[in-house]
Nucleic acid binder design. Structure first.
Lengths: 244, 244
DNA sequence: TCTCCATTATTGACAGACAATCATACAGCT
DNA sequence: AGCTGTATGATTGTCTGTCAATAATGGAGA
């Protein structure tokens, strides 16, 4: 099999818009619920309407954008109920990815995974949330590449993007950091033993712990919002209906 | 909670094109590897290029279409290796969906699931493959609706579409039908007992059995193709690279 | 037969236009 | 005041035409 690591593929303008827009959403440059009108995006990216519309369609399918007919695209909003569902799916997909990694990753990839883990473990508690999120992202990049399953990689990637905002807040919780490190250590150690079942369990446990923290935070926010006089407007939350 | 079953949402032309194109692909009206040029699709659907391009972008994100730069969209092709991966993911997602159904579906939904199962069980062995696929599709529709998890529903839906062609051939295997029915019966019965673990196992088992049959068929085809002088051209299999 | 080049078709991207629809504000009525 | 209806303005959905860049095709020539 030829090495295609040096292969370059031409990147149409559309792809760049897709990537930047995706990035802008998952880094919260656009807030959930925000209206992304054609005009605005055209001006922002300096491209024509057609390109914007195509990019929006792709991000719509990825679930990052919700399009309401005759009103246009909005940044998707994740309710507490939906977050629960996301974590439920993540737990099994991540477990599957971990198991695949334990089975099929090369020794180099395992070493790489440990290296990223050590970086996470060495992070001071007061670090910027985006730094931590970036490290965790790299951890997942290694994991998803080494699990040798394109489909689990794609879907987990989408899920991680989908609730990246929530993840940023849970990761940044200083009291949570040592627990996170311990959980990830369990994953890495299980992988190093090539322990299928152990990795599965460790991954599952990790996500479920994260889910608990996330939902606690979400409920606190909800409570705080309820005590405030005017609840956030939350414009047009998912009026779209999946067909089929 | 207000009943939104009467809600009507306007369907832009684009949505119709998306649906029809998706349907045409999963029912094999377009063969894998086939080139779907703008012109052709414009003529077929009688709409402008912009609409076509947007629809293609959406189906690209769903994995049904692969777009190679400067050559346009092709119907995605599923290699044996990829099929293995799809079944691996399906097994856990379907298990999760089943578990969610066993926990959270209403008694009406459980009855509905059994009703569809009875239809499947009553199918004569010589039935058309598309009839069976349609029934199975309905089974999944009920399951995915009742599991109360939008995300697992979306992802499993995509996976089922992705390998619908393969599923049609495995389902149509007459020697396989009784086994299929038995496996699905196990699922339904576990659900009726509200047995989380049992449903999980039954679903997992069902997919793994299906995977075995599918891979056997794929290998037979591959062997047959290899014995033939000219192997099928299989133009441009997944040259696209996922970013990030 | 093979190689190289010119022609042609197709994609990627842009701009302009138009009807349909939605949001808003304002006037009028009870 | 509170509600209803309408006029205005902005935005979306869609079509058309245009143009450069790239890939596929086919033929000329060695």
């Amino acid at each position: 099999m030829p090495d295609d690591s040096l292969q370059i593929t031409p990147q149409p303008v559309r792809r760049q818009v897709e990537e930047r827009l995706r990035d802008a959403i998952i880094t919260s440059r656009f807030m959930p619920g925000e209206h992304l009108s054609d005009r605005k995006l055209c001006d922002l990216f300096g491209v024509s309407r057609g390109v914007i519309r195509e990019a929006v369609r792709l991000l719509e399918a990825e679930g990052l954008i919700v399009v309401v007919p005759n009103r246009g695209p909005f940044v998707a909003y994740l309710s507490a109920a939906e977050a629960t569902q996301v974590y439920e799916v993540r737990s099994v997909l991540e477990a599957l990815a971990g198991q695949g990694f334990a089975e099929r990753a090369s020794t180099e990839e395992i070493a790489e995974l440990r290296a990223v883990f050590e970086e996470i473990a060495a992070t001071p508690p007061g670090a910027d949330r985006m730094v931590l999120l970036g490290l965790k992202r790299r951890f997942y990049d290694v994991l998803l590449r080494g699990c040798r399953n394109t489909y689990v990689a794609r879907m987990l990637d989408q899920l991680l993007n989908r609730n990246s905002q929530l993840r940023a807040t849970t990761l940044s919780d200083p009291s949570r950091l040592p627990h996170t490190v311990a959980e990830i250590r369990r994953i890495v150690e299980a992988v190093e033993r090539r322990d299928r079942e152990g990795t599965w369990q460790a991954c599952r446990e990790h996500v479920m712990q994260a889910a608990q923290v996330a939902l606690r935070i979400l409920n606190e926010h909800a409570a705080a919002a309820a005590s405030r006089p005017a609840p956030p407007p939350r414009p047009a939350t998912v009026p779209r209906r999946r067909s089929r």
